[in-house]
Simulated scan of single mutants.
Amino acid sequence: MLKQPKLFPNAIVNKYELTWDFEIVTEGVDIVVPKYFRYDGASIPAPAWQATFTPFHPDVMMPALVHDWLYYNHQVEIELVDDIFYRLLRDNGVDNLRANLMWGAVKAAGRFFWENDKEDLDYLEKLYRLVRNRENKDRYQFPQAIIDRVENTGGS
């Protein structure tokens, strides 16, 4: 099993929050998920839980964290993001059948969630404001539009 993120359940928003930066290199991509990033585990519909996992199963939490962050920041193309998800599932101990089921699901449905909507952009802006003064902020790979949006408003 790979290194796992340090998470805190946030009952107010019904999500987990990263308490430390999470860094991983996979498929040749250096990924750094920033502290304070919130996500809702793996997006697995209830009917699929018997065949795969529940959204907060330890085997899928880290791959889902990385996948969600990459869907927000678009650091790499969607096809590679989904392949990274598969690789992290396998490297984290998920068997081939379940990893393929989950990979197939994100390949089929992910394109509907790839583009950031207003809520996503507002969240990215809020998150960037929290971490923008950190030494390694460039490693988070925030979209340039978010950086410009914050820095061109005086940062407040």
Score class of each variant (00 low, 15 high):
residue 1 M to Q: 13
residue 1 M to G: 14
residue 1 M to K: 12
residue 3 K to S: 08
residue 4 Q to N: 13
residue 5 P to Q: 07
residue 5 P to L: 08
residue 8 F to W: 11
residue 8 F to I: 13
residue 10 N to Y: 05
residue 11 A to W: 10
residue 12 I to T: 12
residue 13 V to D: 09
residue 16 Y to W: 11
residue 17 E to Q: 13
residue 17 E to N: 06
residue 19 T to L: 09
residue 20 W to G: 08
residue 25 V to H: 09
residue 28 G to N: 14
residue 28 G to D: 15
residue 29 V to P: 01
residue 31 I to F: 11
residue 34 P to W: 03
residue 35 K to H: 13
residue 35 K to T: 14
residue 37 F to I: 13
residue 38 R to Y: 11
residue 38 R to T: 15
residue 39 Y to I: 12
residue 40 D to H: 07
residue 42 A to D: 14
residue 43 S to D: 09
residue 43 S to A: 11
residue 44 I to L: 02
residue 44 I to D: 02
residue 52 T to L: 01
residue 56 F to C: 02
residue 57 H to D: 05
residue 58 P to Y: 13
residue 59 D to K: 15
residue 59 D to R: 15
residue 61 M to V: 15
residue 62 M to N: 07
residue 63 P to A: 07
residue 65 L to V: 03
residue 65 L to Q: 03
residue 68 D to A: 05
residue 71 Y to L: 02
residue 71 Y to C: 02
residue 72 Y to A: 07
residue 73 N to L: 03
residue 73 N to F: 00
residue 74 H to T: 07
residue 76 V to L: 03
residue 76 V to H: 06
residue 77 E to R: 04
residue 83 D to E: 15
residue 84 I to A: 13
residue 84 I to Q: 12
residue 85 F to I: 11
residue 86 Y to K: 15
residue 86 Y to S: 09
residue 86 Y to I: 09
residue 87 R to F: 12
residue 87 R to P: 08
residue 88 L to E: 12
residue 88 L to A: 14
residue 89 L to A: 08
residue 89 L to Y: 08
residue 90 R to E: 12
residue 92 N to F: 11
residue 93 G to H: 01
residue 94 V to I: 06
residue 95 D to K: 03
residue 97 L to S: 04
residue 99 A to Y: 05
residue 100 N to Q: 10
residue 102 M to H: 04
residue 104 G to N: 15
residue 105 A to D: 02
residue 107 K to L: 09
residue 108 A to G: 10
residue 110 G to C: 01
residue 111 R to T: 13
residue 111 R to L: 13
residue 112 F to R: 14
residue 113 F to S: 01
residue 114 W to G: 05
residue 116 N to K: 13
residue 116 N to L: 12
residue 121 L to P: 00
residue 121 L to E: 04
residue 122 D to S: 03
residue 124 L to Y: 02
residue 126 K to T: 09
residue 127 L to Q: 01
residue 131 V to Y: 03
residue 136 N to K: 13
residue 141 Q to T: 07
residue 143 P to A: 08
residue 143 P to K: 06
residue 143 P to E: 03
residue 146 I to R: 00
residue 150 V to W: 04
residue 153 T to R: 14
residue 155 G to Y: 09
residue 156 S to E: 07
